[in-house]
Design a protein around this nucleic acid. Structure first.
Lengths: 217, 217
DNA sequence: AAATTGATTAAACAGTTGTTTAAAACAGAT
DNA sequence: ATCTGTTTTAAACAACTGTTTAATCAATTT
Protein backbone atom coordinates (compact mmCIF):
# COMPACT_ATOMS: atom_id res chain seq x y z
CA UNK A 1 0.00 0.00 0.00
CA UNK A 2 2.67 2.44 1.05
CA UNK A 3 4.85 1.37 -1.84
CA UNK A 4 2.02 1.94 -4.24
CA UNK A 5 1.55 5.40 -2.83
CA UNK A 6 5.19 6.17 -3.42
CA UNK A 7 4.97 4.93 -6.98
CA UNK A 8 1.86 6.90 -7.61
CA UNK A 9 3.42 10.02 -6.28
CA UNK A 10 6.50 9.50 -8.35
CA UNK A 11 4.49 8.93 -11.47
CA UNK A 12 2.49 12.02 -10.69
CA UNK A 13 5.65 14.00 -10.60
CA UNK A 14 6.56 12.68 -13.98
CA UNK A 15 3.25 12.84 -15.70
CA UNK A 16 2.78 16.58 -15.73
CA UNK A 17 4.77 18.45 -18.27
CA UNK A 18 5.71 20.84 -15.42
CA UNK A 19 8.39 22.19 -17.68
CA UNK A 20 10.61 19.88 -15.61
CA UNK A 21 12.73 22.98 -15.51
CA UNK A 22 10.88 25.06 -12.92
CA UNK A 23 12.64 23.70 -9.87
CA UNK A 24 15.99 23.68 -11.64
CA UNK A 25 15.43 27.17 -13.04
CA UNK A 26 14.81 28.47 -9.53
CA UNK A 27 17.94 26.81 -8.21
CA UNK A 28 20.04 28.17 -11.04
CA UNK A 29 18.65 31.65 -10.55
CA UNK A 30 19.27 31.52 -6.83
CA UNK A 31 22.79 30.19 -7.36
CA UNK A 32 23.64 32.98 -9.75
CA UNK A 33 22.25 35.71 -7.52
CA UNK A 34 23.66 34.37 -4.26
CA UNK A 35 27.19 34.08 -5.61
CA UNK A 36 26.91 37.47 -7.25
CA UNK A 37 25.30 39.56 -4.53
CA UNK A 38 25.44 37.45 -1.40
CA UNK A 39 22.69 36.16 0.83
CA UNK A 40 21.19 39.35 2.22
CA UNK A 41 21.27 41.35 -0.99
CA UNK A 42 19.34 38.66 -2.79
CA UNK A 43 15.58 38.71 -2.24
CA UNK A 44 13.07 35.96 -2.91
CA UNK A 45 11.49 38.28 -5.47
CA UNK A 46 14.86 38.67 -7.20
CA UNK A 47 15.13 34.91 -7.47
CA UNK A 48 11.58 34.54 -8.76
CA UNK A 49 12.15 37.26 -11.34
CA UNK A 50 15.47 35.80 -12.49
CA UNK A 51 13.88 32.36 -12.81
CA UNK A 52 10.78 33.87 -14.43
CA UNK A 53 8.42 32.12 -12.05
CA UNK A 54 5.82 33.25 -9.57
CA UNK A 55 7.17 34.35 -6.20
CA UNK A 56 5.27 31.71 -4.25
CA UNK A 57 6.88 28.94 -6.27
CA UNK A 58 10.22 29.57 -4.66
CA UNK A 59 8.75 28.75 -1.28
CA UNK A 60 6.67 25.97 -2.80
CA UNK A 61 9.76 24.13 -4.01
CA UNK A 62 12.30 25.13 -1.39
CA UNK A 63 10.28 25.99 1.72
CA UNK A 64 12.41 28.93 2.85
CA UNK A 65 15.15 31.29 1.78
CA UNK A 66 17.54 29.86 4.31
CA UNK A 67 16.86 26.38 3.01
CA UNK A 68 17.48 27.17 -0.65
CA UNK A 69 20.63 29.00 0.36
CA UNK A 70 21.87 26.02 2.34
CA UNK A 71 21.24 23.70 -0.59
CA UNK A 72 23.17 25.93 -2.96
CA UNK A 73 25.89 26.63 -0.46
CA UNK A 74 26.34 22.91 0.09
CA UNK A 75 26.67 22.27 -3.64
CA UNK A 76 29.06 25.16 -4.22
CA UNK A 77 31.31 24.17 -1.35
CA UNK A 78 31.20 20.60 -2.54
CA UNK A 79 32.39 21.48 -6.04
CA UNK A 80 34.95 23.77 -4.49
CA UNK A 81 36.52 21.04 -2.38
CA UNK A 82 35.72 17.97 -4.42
CA UNK A 83 37.67 19.38 -7.33
CA UNK A 84 40.91 19.07 -5.36
CA UNK A 85 40.46 16.77 -2.38
CA UNK A 86 40.83 13.49 -4.27
CA UNK A 87 44.18 14.64 -5.63
CA UNK A 88 45.53 15.72 -2.27
CA UNK A 89 44.86 12.33 -0.70
CA UNK A 90 46.15 10.24 -3.57
CA UNK A 91 49.09 8.26 -2.17
CA UNK A 92 50.18 7.09 -5.63
CA UNK A 93 51.08 10.45 -7.17
CA UNK A 94 54.18 12.54 -6.65
CA UNK A 95 54.15 16.09 -5.34
CA UNK A 96 54.87 17.22 -8.90
CA UNK A 97 51.89 15.44 -10.31
CA UNK A 98 49.66 16.78 -7.55
CA UNK A 99 50.65 20.35 -8.32
CA UNK A 100 49.96 20.07 -12.01
CA UNK A 101 46.70 18.17 -11.75
CA UNK A 102 45.24 20.24 -8.92
CA UNK A 103 46.11 23.52 -10.62
CA UNK A 104 44.65 22.31 -13.90
CA UNK A 105 41.49 21.09 -12.23
CA UNK A 106 41.06 24.09 -9.97
CA UNK A 107 41.53 26.71 -12.63
CA UNK A 108 39.12 24.91 -14.93
CA UNK A 109 36.49 24.56 -12.24
CA UNK A 110 36.66 28.14 -11.00
CA UNK A 111 36.82 29.57 -14.51
CA UNK A 112 33.31 28.31 -15.05
CA UNK A 113 32.13 30.09 -11.91
CA UNK A 114 34.62 32.88 -11.20
CA UNK A 115 32.70 34.30 -8.25
CA UNK A 116 32.82 30.99 -6.42
CA UNK A 117 35.91 31.65 -4.25
CA UNK A 118 34.80 35.05 -3.02
CA UNK A 119 31.36 33.64 -2.29
CA UNK A 120 32.67 30.64 -0.38
CA UNK A 121 35.18 32.55 1.70
CA UNK A 122 32.79 35.40 2.29
CA UNK A 123 30.07 33.16 3.62
CA UNK A 124 32.55 31.19 5.70
CA UNK A 125 33.60 34.44 7.33
CA UNK A 126 30.03 35.53 7.98
CA UNK A 127 29.05 32.16 9.35
CA UNK A 128 32.14 30.19 10.42
CA UNK A 129 30.31 27.56 12.41
CA UNK A 130 28.05 26.62 9.53
CA UNK A 131 30.82 25.11 7.46
CA UNK A 132 31.59 22.77 10.32
CA UNK A 133 28.00 21.60 10.23
CA UNK A 134 28.07 21.23 6.47
CA UNK A 135 31.33 19.30 6.59
CA UNK A 136 31.49 17.45 9.87
CA UNK A 137 34.51 15.49 8.64
CA UNK A 138 36.46 18.73 8.62
CA UNK A 139 35.90 19.43 12.28
CA UNK A 140 39.00 21.02 13.70
CA UNK A 141 40.00 18.15 15.96
CA UNK A 142 40.00 15.75 13.04
CA UNK A 143 42.54 17.80 11.12
CA UNK A 144 42.01 15.76 8.01
CA UNK A 145 44.38 17.91 5.98
CA UNK A 146 47.29 17.03 8.23
CA UNK A 147 46.93 13.37 7.33
CA UNK A 148 46.78 13.90 3.60
CA UNK A 149 49.43 12.56 1.26
CA UNK A 150 49.99 16.10 0.05
CA UNK A 151 50.75 17.32 3.55
CA UNK A 152 53.17 14.50 4.26
CA UNK A 153 55.01 14.98 0.99
CA UNK A 154 55.43 18.67 1.68
CA UNK A 155 56.75 17.90 5.12
CA UNK A 156 59.20 15.34 3.77
CA UNK A 157 60.69 17.68 1.19
CA UNK A 158 61.08 20.53 3.64
CA UNK A 159 60.89 19.30 7.25
CA UNK A 160 61.88 22.64 8.74
CA UNK A 161 58.89 24.55 7.47
CA UNK A 162 55.25 24.19 8.45
CA UNK A 163 53.51 22.62 5.41
CA UNK A 164 50.63 25.04 5.96
CA UNK A 165 52.90 27.69 4.50
CA UNK A 166 53.08 25.90 1.18
CA UNK A 167 49.39 25.13 1.18
CA UNK A 168 48.70 28.81 1.70
CA UNK A 169 51.12 29.67 -1.09
CA UNK A 170 49.62 27.15 -3.41
CA UNK A 171 46.03 28.21 -2.83
CA UNK A 172 47.06 31.85 -2.80
CA UNK A 173 48.69 31.95 -6.21
CA UNK A 174 45.97 29.73 -7.66
CA UNK A 175 42.78 31.16 -6.21
CA UNK A 176 43.67 34.76 -5.45
CA UNK A 177 43.79 35.86 -9.10
CA UNK A 178 40.08 35.11 -9.37
CA UNK A 179 39.34 37.08 -6.24
CA UNK A 180 41.39 40.05 -7.40
CA UNK A 181 40.44 40.01 -11.06
CA UNK A 182 37.82 42.79 -10.93
CA UNK A 183 40.44 44.97 -9.29
CA UNK A 184 43.17 44.15 -11.77
CA UNK A 185 40.95 45.12 -14.64
CA UNK A 186 40.88 48.55 -13.04
CA UNK A 187 44.64 48.45 -12.76
CA UNK A 188 45.27 48.24 -16.46
CA UNK A 189 44.61 44.62 -17.26
CA UNK A 190 42.25 44.48 -20.16
CA UNK A 191 39.02 42.51 -20.39
CA UNK A 192 38.19 39.11 -19.00
CA UNK A 193 39.51 37.70 -22.24
CA UNK A 194 42.98 38.65 -21.13
CA UNK A 195 42.34 37.18 -17.68
CA UNK A 196 41.62 33.86 -19.31
CA UNK A 197 44.93 33.72 -21.14
CA UNK A 198 46.72 34.72 -17.96
CA UNK A 199 45.12 31.84 -16.09
CA UNK A 200 46.01 29.45 -18.91
CA UNK A 201 49.65 30.51 -18.64
CA UNK A 202 49.52 30.00 -14.90
CA UNK A 203 48.54 26.37 -15.29
CA UNK A 204 52.09 25.65 -16.41
CA UNK A 205 53.83 28.25 -14.29
CA UNK A 206 52.37 27.56 -10.87
CA UNK A 207 53.85 24.04 -10.54
CA UNK A 208 57.25 25.44 -11.45
CA UNK A 209 56.93 28.26 -8.95
CA UNK A 210 55.90 25.82 -6.27
CA UNK A 211 59.01 23.75 -6.90
CA UNK A 212 61.20 26.81 -6.65
CA UNK A 213 59.59 27.84 -3.38
CA UNK A 214 60.18 24.43 -1.87
CA UNK A 215 63.93 25.00 -2.13
CA UNK A 216 63.96 27.67 0.58
CA UNK A 217 65.66 26.59 3.81
CA UNK B 1 29.68 88.82 8.87
CA UNK B 2 29.93 85.48 7.17
CA UNK B 3 33.27 84.82 8.78
CA UNK B 4 31.85 85.60 12.16
CA UNK B 5 29.06 83.16 11.53
CA UNK B 6 31.57 80.46 10.70
CA UNK B 7 33.50 81.13 13.85
CA UNK B 8 30.38 81.11 15.92
CA UNK B 9 29.31 77.83 14.44
CA UNK B 10 32.72 76.34 14.98
CA UNK B 11 32.81 77.43 18.56
CA UNK B 12 29.33 76.07 19.02
CA UNK B 13 30.51 72.70 17.89
CA UNK B 14 33.26 72.82 20.48
CA UNK B 15 31.39 74.27 23.39
CA UNK B 16 28.93 71.44 23.93
CA UNK B 17 30.27 68.42 25.65
CA UNK B 18 28.53 66.34 22.93
CA UNK B 19 30.65 63.46 24.11
CA UNK B 20 32.76 64.39 21.10
CA UNK B 21 32.61 60.69 20.59
CA UNK B 22 29.08 60.26 19.25
CA UNK B 23 29.92 60.77 15.60
CA UNK B 24 33.12 58.76 15.89
CA UNK B 25 31.40 56.02 17.82
CA UNK B 26 28.85 55.67 15.05
CA UNK B 27 31.54 55.50 12.41
CA UNK B 28 33.50 52.90 14.33
CA UNK B 29 30.41 50.80 14.89
CA UNK B 30 29.45 51.01 11.23
CA UNK B 31 32.99 50.14 10.16
CA UNK B 32 33.07 47.08 12.36
CA UNK B 33 29.69 45.82 11.24
CA UNK B 34 30.15 46.55 7.54
CA UNK B 35 33.47 44.72 7.34
CA UNK B 36 32.08 41.86 9.37
CA UNK B 37 28.68 41.31 7.80
CA UNK B 38 28.67 43.35 4.62
CA UNK B 39 26.43 46.19 3.52
CA UNK B 40 23.04 44.49 3.25
CA UNK B 41 23.31 42.41 6.39
CA UNK B 42 24.05 45.49 8.45
CA UNK B 43 21.01 47.53 9.47
CA UNK B 44 20.89 51.08 10.70
CA UNK B 45 19.50 49.72 13.96
CA UNK B 46 22.49 47.39 14.25
CA UNK B 47 24.80 50.36 13.90
CA UNK B 48 22.89 52.44 16.43
CA UNK B 49 22.87 49.58 18.92
CA UNK B 50 26.58 48.85 18.47
CA UNK B 51 27.38 52.55 18.92
CA UNK B 52 24.90 52.78 21.79
CA UNK B 53 23.13 55.79 20.34
CA UNK B 54 19.59 56.53 19.26
CA UNK B 55 18.67 55.28 15.81
CA UNK B 56 17.89 58.72 14.44
CA UNK B 57 21.37 59.94 15.28
CA UNK B 58 22.89 57.76 12.59
CA UNK B 59 20.88 59.63 9.98
CA UNK B 60 21.42 62.91 11.80
CA UNK B 61 25.19 62.64 11.45
CA UNK B 62 25.51 60.73 8.20
CA UNK B 63 22.29 61.45 6.29
CA UNK B 64 21.85 57.97 4.82
CA UNK B 65 23.07 54.40 5.02
CA UNK B 66 24.59 54.61 1.57
CA UNK B 67 26.47 57.72 2.58
CA UNK B 68 27.98 56.30 5.76
CA UNK B 69 28.95 53.20 3.83
CA UNK B 70 30.68 55.25 1.15
CA UNK B 71 32.63 57.16 3.76
CA UNK B 72 33.80 53.98 5.46
CA UNK B 73 34.46 52.21 2.18
CA UNK B 74 36.59 55.12 1.04
CA UNK B 75 38.65 55.05 4.22
CA UNK B 76 39.09 51.28 4.16
CA UNK B 77 40.19 51.22 0.55
CA UNK B 78 42.51 54.09 1.23
CA UNK B 79 44.29 52.30 4.05
CA UNK B 80 44.33 49.17 1.93
CA UNK B 81 46.16 50.83 -0.95
CA UNK B 82 48.05 53.55 0.85
CA UNK B 83 49.86 50.97 2.90
CA UNK B 84 51.66 49.69 -0.20
CA UNK B 85 51.41 52.20 -3.02
CA UNK B 86 54.22 54.47 -1.85
CA UNK B 87 56.61 51.54 -1.78
CA UNK B 88 55.71 50.33 -5.25
CA UNK B 89 56.43 53.69 -6.85
CA UNK B 90 59.67 54.36 -5.01
CA UNK B 91 62.36 54.56 -7.68
CA UNK B 92 65.17 54.52 -5.09
CA UNK B 93 64.61 51.06 -3.65
CA UNK B 94 65.55 47.69 -5.07
CA UNK B 95 63.09 44.93 -5.81
CA UNK B 96 64.41 43.15 -2.70
CA UNK B 97 63.72 46.08 -0.49
CA UNK B 98 60.27 46.53 -1.94
CA UNK B 99 59.34 42.94 -1.18
CA UNK B 100 60.45 43.10 2.41
CA UNK B 101 58.97 46.48 3.22
CA UNK B 102 55.65 45.90 1.48
CA UNK B 103 55.17 42.50 3.08
CA UNK B 104 56.04 43.90 6.49
CA UNK B 105 53.70 46.84 6.07
CA UNK B 106 50.86 44.87 4.56
CA UNK B 107 50.81 42.12 7.11
CA UNK B 108 50.93 44.65 9.92
CA UNK B 109 48.10 46.70 8.48
CA UNK B 110 45.80 43.80 7.73
CA UNK B 111 46.52 42.08 11.03
CA UNK B 112 44.83 44.99 12.76
CA UNK B 113 41.75 44.53 10.58
CA UNK B 114 41.78 40.95 9.30
CA UNK B 115 38.44 41.19 7.55
CA UNK B 116 39.59 44.10 5.42
CA UNK B 117 40.68 42.13 2.30
CA UNK B 118 37.52 40.07 2.04
CA UNK B 119 35.45 43.19 2.56
CA UNK B 120 37.30 45.20 -0.06
CA UNK B 121 37.31 42.52 -2.72
CA UNK B 122 33.75 41.53 -1.96
CA UNK B 123 32.43 45.03 -2.38
CA UNK B 124 34.52 45.57 -5.49
CA UNK B 125 32.90 42.51 -6.98
CA UNK B 126 29.42 43.64 -6.04
CA UNK B 127 29.97 47.13 -7.33
CA UNK B 128 32.91 47.20 -9.76
CA UNK B 129 32.21 50.62 -11.21
CA UNK B 130 32.15 52.29 -7.81
CA UNK B 131 35.83 51.77 -7.16
CA UNK B 132 36.59 53.64 -10.37
CA UNK B 133 34.59 56.56 -9.06
CA UNK B 134 36.30 56.37 -5.67
CA UNK B 135 39.72 56.19 -7.28
CA UNK B 136 39.60 58.04 -10.59
CA UNK B 137 43.39 57.86 -10.86
CA UNK B 138 43.07 54.11 -11.20
CA UNK B 139 40.85 54.27 -14.26
CA UNK B 140 41.76 51.45 -16.58
CA UNK B 141 43.15 53.58 -19.39
CA UNK B 142 45.62 55.19 -17.04
CA UNK B 143 47.13 51.87 -16.03
CA UNK B 144 49.05 53.45 -13.22
CA UNK B 145 50.45 50.12 -12.04
CA UNK B 146 52.18 49.53 -15.34
CA UNK B 147 54.25 52.67 -14.85
CA UNK B 148 55.31 51.84 -11.32
CA UNK B 149 58.93 51.22 -10.41
CA UNK B 150 57.88 47.83 -9.08
CA UNK B 151 56.40 46.83 -12.42
CA UNK B 152 59.45 47.95 -14.37
CA UNK B 153 61.84 46.15 -12.06
CA UNK B 154 59.87 42.95 -12.39
CA UNK B 155 59.91 43.30 -16.14
CA UNK B 156 63.63 43.91 -16.19
CA UNK B 157 64.49 40.84 -14.14
CA UNK B 158 62.26 38.57 -16.18
CA UNK B 159 61.37 40.14 -19.54
CA UNK B 160 59.69 37.01 -20.88
CA UNK B 161 56.93 36.92 -18.31
CA UNK B 162 54.06 39.31 -17.82
CA UNK B 163 54.82 41.17 -14.55
CA UNK B 164 51.17 40.83 -13.63
CA UNK B 165 51.96 37.21 -12.86
CA UNK B 166 54.38 38.18 -10.12
CA UNK B 167 52.08 40.83 -8.77
CA UNK B 168 49.35 38.23 -8.51
CA UNK B 169 51.76 35.84 -6.82
CA UNK B 170 52.94 38.46 -4.42
CA UNK B 171 49.48 39.61 -3.41
CA UNK B 172 48.26 36.04 -3.40
CA UNK B 173 50.74 34.65 -0.93
CA UNK B 174 50.52 37.80 1.20
CA UNK B 175 46.80 38.53 1.32
CA UNK B 176 45.20 35.17 0.72
CA UNK B 177 46.12 33.73 4.14
CA UNK B 178 43.89 36.34 5.75
CA UNK B 179 41.04 35.51 3.43
CA UNK B 180 41.38 31.79 4.04
CA UNK B 181 42.15 31.89 7.76
CA UNK B 182 38.64 31.03 9.02
CA UNK B 183 38.74 27.99 6.76
CA UNK B 184 42.18 26.89 7.84
CA UNK B 185 41.14 26.93 11.45
CA UNK B 186 38.57 24.34 10.43
CA UNK B 187 41.29 22.38 8.71
CA UNK B 188 43.32 21.75 11.80
CA UNK B 189 45.15 25.01 12.33
CA UNK B 190 44.60 26.07 15.88
CA UNK B 191 43.40 29.44 17.12
CA UNK B 192 44.09 32.87 15.76
CA UNK B 193 47.11 32.92 18.02
CA UNK B 194 48.72 30.38 15.75
CA UNK B 195 47.70 32.36 12.69
CA UNK B 196 49.61 35.32 14.04
CA UNK B 197 52.86 33.41 14.40
CA UNK B 198 52.38 31.97 10.92
CA UNK B 199 52.05 35.47 9.49
CA UNK B 200 55.12 36.62 11.41
CA UNK B 201 57.11 33.81 9.85
CA UNK B 202 55.84 34.74 6.43
CA UNK B 203 57.24 38.24 6.72
CA UNK B 204 60.70 36.77 6.26
CA UNK B 205 59.72 33.92 3.97
CA UNK B 206 57.68 35.71 1.33
CA UNK B 207 60.56 37.86 0.03
CA UNK B 208 62.68 34.73 -0.31
CA UNK B 209 59.93 32.87 -2.11
CA UNK B 210 59.44 35.78 -4.46
CA UNK B 211 63.11 35.73 -5.36
CA UNK B 212 62.96 32.03 -6.07
CA UNK B 213 59.94 32.46 -8.28
CA UNK B 214 61.64 35.15 -10.32
CA UNK B 215 64.19 32.61 -11.48
CA UNK B 216 61.71 30.71 -13.65
CA UNK B 217 62.31 31.06 -17.39
C1' DA C 1 -17.83 13.37 -17.47
C1' DA C 2 -16.26 13.85 -12.86
C1' DA C 3 -12.85 13.65 -9.57
C1' DT C 4 -8.08 13.93 -8.22
C1' DT C 5 -3.77 15.87 -7.89
C1' DG C 6 0.23 18.64 -8.49
C1' DA C 7 1.56 23.28 -10.44
C1' DT C 8 0.70 28.03 -10.58
C1' DT C 9 -1.27 32.40 -9.37
C1' DA C 10 -2.69 36.92 -7.05
C1' DA C 11 -3.37 38.71 -2.76
C1' DA C 12 -2.56 39.26 1.75
C1' DC C 13 0.12 38.71 6.23
C1' DA C 14 3.18 40.38 9.83
C1' DG C 15 7.73 41.89 10.59
C1' DT C 16 11.70 44.61 9.26
C1' DT C 17 13.87 48.10 6.66
C1' DG C 18 15.73 53.18 5.93
C1' DT C 19 14.17 57.57 6.84
C1' DT C 20 11.57 61.54 8.67
C1' DT C 21 9.19 64.16 12.09
C1' DA C 22 8.16 66.95 15.91
C1' DA C 23 9.05 67.40 20.51
C1' DA C 24 12.29 67.31 24.28
C1' DA C 25 16.81 67.93 26.57
C1' DC C 26 20.87 70.28 26.75
C1' DA C 27 24.62 73.86 27.18
C1' DG C 28 26.02 78.31 26.50
C1' DA C 29 24.92 83.50 25.26
C1' DT C 30 22.06 87.32 26.12
C1' DA D 1 15.67 83.82 33.70
C1' DT D 2 15.16 83.86 28.71
C1' DC D 3 16.75 82.89 24.40
C1' DT D 4 19.61 80.37 20.75
C1' DG D 5 21.25 76.77 18.43
C1' DT D 6 22.68 71.88 18.81
C1' DT D 7 22.00 67.28 20.18
C1' DT D 8 19.03 63.54 21.50
C1' DT D 9 14.72 61.12 21.77
C1' DA D 10 10.35 58.39 20.81
C1' DA D 11 7.16 57.69 17.42
C1' DA D 12 5.64 57.31 13.05
C1' DC D 13 6.03 56.69 7.84
C1' DA D 14 6.03 54.08 3.61
C1' DA D 15 8.42 50.68 1.26
C1' DC D 16 10.17 46.22 1.25
C1' DT D 17 11.08 41.69 3.37
C1' DG D 18 9.99 36.30 3.73
C1' DT D 19 6.07 33.60 4.00
C1' DT D 20 1.27 31.89 3.78
C1' DT D 21 -3.31 31.56 1.99
C1' DA D 22 -7.00 30.30 -0.84
C1' DA D 23 -8.33 30.12 -5.40
C1' DT D 24 -7.39 28.68 -10.19
C1' DC D 25 -5.31 26.01 -13.81
C1' DA D 26 -4.08 21.87 -16.27
C1' DA D 27 -3.17 17.10 -16.85
C1' DT D 28 -4.17 12.43 -15.43
C1' DT D 29 -7.16 8.81 -13.31
C1' DT D 30 -11.39 6.94 -12.24
Amino acid sequence: MFFIYICKKKSNIMRYKTDQATEERIKDAAGTLFTLKGYSSTTMRDIAAQAEVNLALVNYYFRSKENIFKIIMREKIQTFFNSIFPYLFDEQTSLQEKFTSVVEKYINTISQDPNLPLFVFGEIQKNPEEISSLFPMLASHNDILRESSFFKQLHKINPHLNPFHFILNFLGITIFPFIASPLLVNFGMESSENMKTIMEERKKLIPQWMNQMLLIE
